[in-house]
Design a protein around this nucleic acid. Structure first.
Length: 873
RNA sequence: GCCCCCUUGGCGGAACUGGUAGACGCAAGGGACUUAAAAUCCCUCGGCCUUUGGCCGUGCCGGUUCGAGUCCGGCAGGGGGCACCA
């Protein structure tokens, strides 16, 4: 039967309209069926969607459609992470209001997303820059403030002295501001912080329960929280060298066992002792300034050359009053960590060793391998960091480091100096409180007022929202909120006098730390409807990029706990299942180099192949472009493919199918036109198989089918079982491979069945129905078209997932490979679950076995039931 | 610098919990159909050899095991994160 080609340009809009009219994807909170919440990390509205974005929405959509078919009440919402710097950059460059720019982008991107046929409940959509949303975020802030989860303290920022603005780490390039090029300073500002450290231990312990998270994300979070058990030690300053008013230096260490290997103390440039000495020592003051000019990021500090400056101050060793050690200011010690001071043990730490070698400080080995020789064991270029035995450590000699730790700790705890023990055991966390102040316009205003008399006064809830003013200009440097003529002037809600609004806005990570809760009741007056939040949360399956493995996920875990303390919901962990997907990458095309470099979009390029070498030619100019590496799709490198380019040609289903084929979902996938072509061929093949047979087959008594018909049913039911399991494990690429296998198996049989018995026709109808249902989550439009063609009157999007017949899935015999000495020599067919004795007998009777054994008796026969046989000769 | 991940044919990848390495797809080559092209269908497709068979082969070196892509130790290469990008 001749059939027309499947036309996605016609079918896709048609079915999207049909779904929308039937309101199939609008979710009712009161639906009594079991709930399933699937969520993809919402996008930043940067301008246009490219198919890189759509891959994870497609994954979520497959999960959503599959779960819906399994009978769940599915929540699958979408929104916009809409505050942030790019809007301000656009405002400065294009003189367009950040809000206007953002909402225009959202409109464009929503339309693009809709082309993909995602089963999203659009009635719940919001953007975090909607006043309705940030109004509720301000309510949360006030509740947190009341519960003592928010406070202010001094903290450092990257300050651009020319642009008069605070810079993000990414805006600091080689120590200079990206726009002004001026050297960046570190400035202390009073800023707002969330007390995430209140939950350090709980955030750490609860990771063990998140067993549907990738192990690597849990490891990253564990390291980030960084729990350590150590000793806080007070070192007495040598009176002859101590500056006025200073008597001791407090140091935190996780290795008190190495105390006899100590050869120097290192303190942060901002340590009070450093500041004290610097006041009378201009050279030190200059060195401290230099340290402050380095970036604020750990990576910048750690990769910078290790430098120190001797303060001249000496400390006295706690176990030897005659032993003094120098105190250095060092550029790798951070005031935020521990006490801002460490003792350096060069033999046991590579960084300390490098430092000691540079400044000619002693290196005394204190731990050596168990079988080492204490008399000759030396450390010169490489520190010894492993376990072993203590040496050169007086009363610790011969102990393990662990025992030495205990010994030092208990001796020092027992010594009292000035009414306090000399040392204290302390659990510390690397995790720092979350600084949320941003000196920017395009963010959620922090709802407080500064009054000269009353201090910091929260904005009364009745006065919320504190709205961002619309009339702003980005012409001048600095924060537009600061220099707005009227916005910041208010009366104090407590005393009625003139007061000033807080002009800091919130970190955009705050916006994304509770949006998943807001989706459960997006129109509620309070931040959440606690019943809806508790019913829906935790999110059953959260899908997003690995780049959010630490901050976004940790902040959201904190927020959920804080919202529980303030009564907005009643759970601790927001995301039950987490999946981190890979990116879609594409090669880049560049002409010119350096500052004259120009990037070209794939659509502007023609690829040629000659002599086994690929060449890229710019179509318009004929110029050859350099083919660059596979990179994440980005606007700046122009290596993006938009969904329209696909939907206008092959259709959304082809793009969805291609993006989930081949590459496992947690790895990157390379977009290639050939791959997309291949995916589209398969779309047409399914259409051909289904539409070609549909008119000649009909539902009926499929169970009566034998021979090919039975084989076809077995193939379909086996595939159905396997694909269902793959979808549950998010094994989309495996599911797709199985669909290919299924089509390969049934296509020839279906054709014959069209002219066969009624039982064969029924078997073909059943097999094709199963095929259509298993492809429906990935290729929903094609599936609807096929479903209709097969004679169904309802849509496949609302059809329940079919059940496989266990009898058709079970095999009663199994092919066992037979190895002799670990090499495969042949195979035998045995009944399923045959016992070992029977298998051994069969194996020993096989020709190829007797041939290989050459008459000798086997030493041993290993039979792994239903798996393999290995004969040891 | 620290932490984490990855490495299997020409390419993307499959292989459940240590049990037939290369499923499935892409590309390539050959054939059928066609006046021709597209589309479609069929065959071949890790390497080597003395080819109804055999040897080698999962980044490299070593180990555990009857058996290792999978586990352990070491090394190399590539990628990601590092607190104001989102």
């Amino acid at each position: 039967m001749a059939t027309e080609r499947y036309n996605p340009r016609e079918a896709e809009p048609k079915w999207q309209k049909a779904w929308a009219e039937a309101k199939l994807f609008e979710t009712d909170n009161d639906d009594p069926r079991p709930k399933y919440y699937v969520l993809e990390m919402f996008p930043y509205p940067s301008g246009r969607i490219h198919i890189g974005h759509t891959r994870n929405y497609t994954m979520g959509d497959v999960v959503a459609r599959h779960r819906r078919a399994l009978g769940y009440n599915v929540l699958h919402p979408m929104g916009w992470d809409a505050f942030g710097m790019p809007a301000e950059n656009a405002a400065m460059q294009n003189k367009v209001h950040p809000g206007k720019w953002t909402y225009a982008n959202i409109d464009t991107m929503r339309e693009q997303l809709k082309l993909m046929g995602l089963s999203i409940d659009w009635t719940r959509e919001f953007a975090t820059c909607d006043v309705d949303y940030y109004h509720r975020q301000q309510m949360l802030f006030l509740d947190f403030l009341e519960k003592d989860l928010v406070y202010r303290k001094q903290s450092k920022v990257n300050w651009d002295p020319v642009d008069m603005t605070v810079l993000a780490n990414e805006q600091v390039i080689d120590g200079c501001g990206w726009r002004s090029g001026a050297p960046v300073e570190q400035r202390e500002l009073t800023q707002w912080f969330f007390k995430i450290t209140d939950f350090s231990q709980d955030l750490l312990d609860s990771l063990d329960q998140l067993d549907e998270w990738p192990e690597k994300v849990r490891v990253m979070q564990r390291n980030w929280i960084g729990r350590s058990e150590g000793l806080q030690i007070r070192w007495e300053l040598d009176k002859a060298t101590a500056p006025a008013g200073e008597t001791e230096l407090e140091v935190y260490t996780t290795r008190p066992d190495t105390i006899f290997g100590a050869s120097f103390m290192a303190i942060a440039a901002d340590h009070p002792l450093a500041k004290n000495v610097a006041a009378t020592n201009p050279d030190l003051a200059a060195f401290c300034d230099e340290c402050r000019r380095a970036g604020t990021s750990v990576a910048a500090l750690e990769t910078a050359e290790k430098k120190g400056f001797d303060t001249g101050v000496r400390v006295v060793h706690p176990f030897d009053p005659s032993w003094t050690l120098p105190v250095y200011v060092a550029n790798f010690v951070l005031m935020d960590y521990g006490t801002g001071a460490i003792f350096g043990c060069p033999s046991g730490d590579q960084r300390d060793l490098d430092f000691a070698n540079k400044y000619g400080l002693p290196v005394v080995p204190v731990v050596m391998p168990k079988d080492g020789d204490a008399a000759t064991f030396q450390i010169t270029e490489e520190a010894y960091v492993d376990d072993g035995v203590m040496i050169n450590s007086r009363f610790l000699d011969g102990m393990t480091p662990d025992a030495a730790f205990e010994e030092v700790a208990s001796r020092m705890e027992a010594v009292t100096i000035g009414n306090q023990p000399q040392a204290e055991r302390k659990v510390r966390f690397r995790l720092r409180d979350w600084g949320i102040s941003r000196q920017r316009y395009w963010g959620c205003p922090i709802p407080v007022i500064h009054c000269d008399d009353c201090g910091v006064v929260p904005v009364p809830k009745a006065d919320l929202p504190v709205k961002l003013p619309d009339d702003i200009d980005f012409e001048k440097p600095g924060n537009p909120l600061d220099r707005h003529p009227t916005w910041r002037h208010v009366t104090c809600p407590q005393c009625g006098k003139d007061a000033r609004r807080e002009t800091d806005t919130m970190d955009t990570f705050v916006d994304s730390s509770w949006y998943f809760a807001r989706f459960t009741a997006p129109k509620a007056d309070e931040p959440t409807d606690p019943k809806a939040a508790n019913d829906w949360l935790p999110v059953d399956q959260y899908i997003g990029g690995i780049e959010h493995a630490i901050l976004h996920l940790l902040y959201s875990r904190f927020f959920t706990r804080a919202m529980r303390e303030t009564g907005h919901l009643d759970l601790a962990e927001p995301f039950k299942g987490l999946f981190t997907q890979g990116m879609v990458v594409h090669e880049t095309y560049r002409t010119g180099s350096g500052s004259g470099a120009q990037w070209h979009a794939p659509s502007e390029i023609r690829l040629e192949e000659s002599g086994g070498k690929r060449r890229a030619v710019v179509i318009e100019t004929g110029e050859e472009a350099e083919i660059g590496h596979l990179e994440k799709m980005s606007k700046s490198k122009k290596n993006t493919i938009g969904p329209e380019e696909i939907t206008q040609g092959y259709g959304a289903d082809t793009a969805r199918w291609f993006m989930l084929s081949d590459s496992p979902p947690d790895r990157d996938v390379e977009w290639s036109d050939r791959g997309a072509e291949g995916a589209h061929r398969f779309v047409q093949r399914i259409w051909r198989v289904v539409s070609g047979a549909a008119g000649a087959i009909a539902p009926g008594d499929a169970a009566a089918a034998g021979g090919d018909g039975l084989a076809m049913r077995k193939a379909a039911h086996k595939a159905l079982k396997a694909i269902g399991e793959d979808f549950e494990k998010l094994g989309f690429n495996r599911a797709i491979a199985r669909v290919h296998e299924l089509v390969n198996e049934i296509a020839p049989v279906v054709e014959k069945a069209a002219s066969g018995s009624n039982a064969d026709k029924a078997a073909a109808h059943e097999a094709l129905s199963i095929l259509v249902q298993v492809i429906a989550p990935v290729m929903p439009h094609l599936a609807e078209e096929c479903w209709q063609t097969l004679g169904y009157e309802t849509m496949v999007a609302e059809a329940p997932w079919p059940a496989f017949d266990p009898a058709l899935v079970e095999e009663n015999s199994v092919t066992l490979p037979v190895q002799i000495n670990g090499k495969r020599r042949g195979e035998i067919v045995v009944p399923k679950d045959a016992d070992k004795a029977a298998v051994e007998e069969l194996v020993l009777g096989a020709d190829f076995v007797t041939h290989h054994l050459g008459g000798a008796a086997p030493k041993k026969i290993i039979v792994v039931p239903n798996r393999i046989v290995n004969i040891v000769a």
